Computed example of a mutant assay.
Amino acid sequence: MEFPADAFLPGPRVTIPGAVGGSLSDLTFAAKDLFDVAGHRTGGGNPDWAATHPVPTTHAWAVQALLGAGANLVGKTVTCEISLGILGFNAFDGTPPNPAAPGCLPGGSSSGSASAVAAGLCDIALGTDSGGSVRVPSSLCGLYGMRPSLGAVSMEGVCRQAPTYDTVGWFARDAATFARAAEVLLGTPLPAPEAAGLLVAEDAFAFADPDLADALRPAVARIGAFIGGATATSIAEPGELEVWASQRNILQRAESWQTFRGWIEAVNPRFGFNVARNLTMASSITSEQVALANVARRRVVERARLLLEGGALLCTPTTPFTAPPLGLPLSELDRYSARIGLLTSFAGLVGLPQISLPVATIGGKPAGLSLIGWRGADARLAAIAKALEANA
């Protein structure tokens, strides 16, 4: 499945200068085409979404925050349709290239944002992450990227998908730039890194390709030594991660159907097959299925609280593999997507912050290592990434 495209939307670039003299005035940024930019249509990666929604008159909060800090907007980037995708392809706007792994998928749905940063076309890019759409392209494109705590960065002016999962995240090529953006978007100075210990989720590492897991181990040891020592643990009991991923899928799809149902029923929009199929499945999820999935979610919250509320950080591979090649059939892409969900569901179900660090390369392709903290640890994660880079 190949729809080659650029990172940016077709047509003239959307450009807006940042405020003079701001803390980010030497930086450029791009925004995923789910973020409102005043005077420019928000396309959502779907032609019928663009055609049936009014042109915004105000900027999304995150766009305004970066502009207000002096960063210059240099374009809007391709997204999977209405954010429903994890590998980065779009039947209408195309698949952005992966500069770090040519000929491979960039990861989605914030695919264009990751592609633009990886290619050096901007310093920072805004994305959204519900099921992994910042974390996954960060790993596959060799970038720093974060899914913040739920609600830590305002979603005002952003196309929603699943409200109890949706977050605004961002990408950068280096940790120092990432941290500067973090201070603006999180609204707080970064703290000094704390030595509260690293929990290494061995069950998560077991889901990764063996060569990828091995390639991440030196970084795990280095981070453990930096923050107070590493301890092996398991996120879940045997078999639970698979259950949690399937139940997260039910909950997120059920929420996405409620988000888009009114528009779909009124407009009967065009979709690529994979998006139409997933929305059709979402429309058949029952209230009983949702109730059962919420039981699993409460179990995940209890486990996360036990592991992380005391300040320790959890370490996992961000993705279980490096970037898949372009041109794979949909059935194979589905298998890749399902494997991703085994690693991304934990933070999503609990609303936890998770940062992906570009620490390894396997066969010339990057792989990310994730640090997950308890709710509110966002600035701390960015500070650790910055300190690790400075002491490399």
Results as ranks from 00 to 15, higher is better:
Leu349Gln: 00
Ser149Thr: 15
Leu251His: 07
Ala383Ser: 14
Ser284Asn: 12
Ala19Asp: 02
Val78Ile: 11
Ala204Gly: 09
Ala236Trp: 03
Phe346Arg: 08
Pro353Tyr: 08
Phe29Arg: 03
Glu302Tyr: 10
Pro238Trp: 05
Thr164His: 09
Asn278Asp: 15
Phe260Val: 11
Arg222Val: 06
Val14Met: 11
Arg222Ser: 12
Glu309Pro: 04
Asp214Ala: 15
Glu309Asn: 12
Arg248Thr: 02
Gly310Tyr: 09
Ala71Tyr: 00
Ala254Asp: 07
Trp374Gln: 00
Glu288Cys: 08
Ala293Val: 09
Phe207Tyr: 13
Asp209Val: 05
Gly103Ile: 10
Lys386Pro: 05
Phe3Lys: 04
Pro210Tyr: 13
Asp378Arg: 02
Leu381Ser: 10
Glu194Asp: 10
Val14Glu: 03
Ala19Cys: 10
Ala347Ile: 02
Gly327Asp: 06
Leu326Trp: 04
Met281Thr: 09
Val55Glu: 12
Gly157Glu: 06
Leu306Gln: 15
Gly39His: 09
Val295Ile: 14
Arg375Lys: 15
Ser246Asn: 15
Ala60Ile: 06
Leu292Pro: 03
Met146Asp: 05
Ala282Asp: 06
Pro56Val: 14
Gln64Thr: 04
Asp174Ser: 14
Ile362Asp: 11
Pro358Ile: 05
Gly228Pro: 10
Ile235Glu: 00
Phe3Trp: 12
Ala392Ser: 14
Glu2Val: 14
Glu255Thr: 01
Met1Asn: 08
Ala60Leu: 10
Ala215Tyr: 01
Ala50Pro: 00
Thr322Gly: 05
Asn72Tyr: 06
Glu156Arg: 11
Arg299Phe: 08
Ser115His: 03
Gly341Met: 11
Ala172His: 01
Lys386Leu: 12
Leu105Ile: 15
Val78Thr: 00
Arg135Thr: 07
Arg375Met: 13
Leu330Thr: 15
Gly21Lys: 05
Leu199Ser: 00
Asn274Thr: 11
Gly75Ile: 09
Asp211Phe: 12
Val275Asn: 03
Thr164Glu: 10
Leu292Thr: 14
Glu183Ser: 14
Val243Pro: 02
Thr95Ile: 03
Thr318Gln: 07
Gln258Ser: 12
Ile124Phe: 15
Ala230Lys: 08
Ser109Asn: 04
Cys122Gln: 03
Gly311Val: 10
Gly107Trp: 02
Ile250Asp: 00
Ser256Ala: 15
Pro329Val: 05
Ala377Glu: 05
Ala19Glu: 03
Ser287Ala: 15
Asp211Ile: 14
Ala125Pro: 03
Glu183Lys: 08
Pro10Met: 05
Ala266Gly: 15
Cys80Asp: 03
Gly373Val: 08
Ala162Thr: 03
Val184Met: 04
Cys122Gly: 07
Asp36Tyr: 09
Gln354Ser: 15
His53Asp: 14
Thr15Asp: 13
Gly145Tyr: 13
Thr28Gln: 09
Ala179Leu: 05
